[in-house]
Amino acid sequence: MREIVFDTETTGLSFPGGDRIVEIGCVELHNRVMTGRTFHAYVNPQRPVPIEAFNVHGLSDRFLSDKPLFHDIVEDLLEFLGDCPLVAHNAGFDFSFLNGELARCGRPHCGPDRMVDTLTIARSRHPGAKHSLDALCSRYGIDLSARQLHGALLDAQLLAQVYVELTGGRQITLGLAVDAPIMRETPAEAPTRVHVRPARNFAPSAAELARHAAFVMGLEEPLWASAASG
């Protein structure tokens, strides 16, 4: 099953109040495994970024001034989103901005039937606990060292890992997959890699190999001996 985990950064908290998207990041999952395919764009909001918002995501008026408008990226975005479920943390917020921008471009909105809210899932699974993205990453041992500021693509990649844990962990499909590298283009265009925990080593020790060899030598009339003699 294909799903898209996405996050937005904005100029504020209210699209009807005049706030706009300044960054959007999307991560593709297939059967709850990151495929490595992403969509990421900075967006010129055509309005000043308040200092409160800048302190959250670090995207300044100057940095955003030469970025594309939302209607310049909307076709590529919609192609990437397709018609699959859309996963976000406090999804009502991100959906309100996404649908607001789509409406301004004359495009159909993404309906609530596509919405998967990880905040709702987290509250159900961990009542009484903290449910911020940072808190959930800490709960599930997901490395946050690259998250100095909020960033749409980085946050979507972190949320994808949280979502997998909230919905059963990596073994949900009983499949094996290699972790995709997690990258984010910062405003300085300097990529940062999030640490992925290495695979554990289950190789037998020398003592274990010796005990196994002794056990095999003590077997009476083993089947492989009969097969070899026949």
Rank of each mutant, 00 (worst) to 15 (best):
R47A: 06
V33C: 01
P187F: 10
A91C: 03
Q161W: 13
S229W: 01
V27A: 01
I4S: 01
G106S: 06
D66F: 03
G17I: 02
I73A: 11
S205V: 02
I21D: 09
T192R: 15
V196A: 11
F54E: 08
P50A: 03
F80H: 06
D76Q: 15
Q171E: 15
L86C: 05
L81Q: 06
P85Y: 01
T173H: 15
C26L: 04
D134W: 02
V87L: 05
M183C: 10
P198L: 06
S138H: 05
R200N: 04
S14R: 03
L174E: 15
G12T: 06
P198S: 12
L136C: 05
T192Y: 03
V33Q: 12
T186Q: 08
G230Q: 00
D143V: 10
G36Q: 03
L149M: 14
P187S: 07
G151L: 14
P85V: 08
L223Q: 04
P112V: 00
E75F: 13
A160W: 08
L174P: 06
K67L: 11
L102F: 15
A41C: 10
E3Q: 05
G106D: 13
H131F: 14
L174H: 15
F39Y: 12
N99D: 14
L149P: 00
P68A: 07
L174G: 14
D113P: 00
E3M: 04
M1N: 13
V194H: 02
